[in-house]
Amino acid sequence: MIFIRKLKAVTISLFLFFTMMSVSFAQSSHAIKINSQEVNLSKPIVEKESRIYVPIRIVVDEFGATVEWKKDTKETIIQMNSGDQITFKLNDVSVLLNGEKYYMDAPTIIENNHIYIPVRHLTEFLHANFQYDVNTKQMNVSTIPLHTIIAGETVQSISEQYGITIEQLKVRNNLQSDELFINDKLKVVIPSIMLSKLAQNFSEEEIELLAKIISAEAGYEPYEGQIAVGNVILNRVNDSRFPNTIKDVIYAPNQFTPARTGKLETIQPSAQSIKAAQEVLSGKNVVEGALYFFNPKVSKSGFFNSKEVVKEIGGHRFVK
């Protein structure tokens, strides 16, 4: 059992400066309440690509967390009162939660020399529930107290009480066994970045590798086409005629040009390609049975033309 320490709330005023130029995004008319109290943020809420962002300073001003900016690595480290440590980089979808790497569905951004983060992700990190009224543009954040273990409770009874699985409860609290101790505290809000990773037994490296090949082969294709490319990889993994791992399928001889040329190692997967990879690994399949894809305007191969067409999406034809 890993004991969870109470951390004293420390409020620190922090102003983050960067040498890079700020990119301007639309400031929104959204309002936010925290525990039913209207909050006037020192910096405006920002909306970008249908996602709502709040300044990272909110965790200092409203939640008493501490924030550290590491100039040498360009990392922001947030120490939450719950004991969580969150580390992320600017314009990056990856995030370290207590040293474990996960992926958000949108990157952090900079606006007016301040770091902004998608509000839903931030509230989950703060051990809070988030509700949004699309008509009034009102956001409501309600903090959830850590669960204090009482006599007779088990990991099963606690997980059932909060509507989460035993695995989610144990991973969230780094529990190595089912043994619990009275008066210890447990986190019961499971961030969505953890849910997507726990959905299937795929490693961080496999998720990132699949996102890379999706980005390399279909980065400019419609989102459905990106999912379809990921489907082809996983369809091969599940087909006895091909290797049975994501890595071995992608790096099989003479199959995918980015893997063969080494380009794949240099690619930084986009937020959309990571989201597509997560959906693929969670079971979404838009090209059932497809084992190949090609651009019919570029490739005139008789091999591809002899295959049964499953679907055409954007510039790619998917066949089996």
Rank of each mutant, 00 (worst) to 15 (best):
S13L: 11
L14W: 02
L16I: 15
M20A: 09
H30V: 12
I34N: 09
V46N: 04
E49S: 14
P55G: 00
V67A: 05
W69M: 04
D72S: 14
Q79E: 10
M80F: 10
T87I: 13
F88G: 05
G99F: 06
K101Y: 02
I109D: 07
I110T: 06
N112H: 04
I117Y: 13
L126P: 01
Q131H: 06
Q138I: 11
E153V: 07
T154P: 00
Q156C: 00
S157Y: 07
S157W: 03
N183E: 14
D184P: 07
L186D: 15
I190G: 00
S192R: 01
K197C: 01
A199I: 03
K212T: 03
I213Q: 13
Q226H: 02
V229R: 10
G230T: 06
G230N: 09
L234M: 15
Y251W: 11
F256Y: 15
A259I: 12
A259Q: 12
T261M: 10
T261Y: 11
T261N: 14
L264V: 10
P269D: 02
A271T: 01
K275V: 10
Q278A: 10
L281I: 08
K284S: 09
L291I: 13
Y292V: 05
P296A: 12
K300F: 10
E312R: 07
G315V: 05
K320I: 14
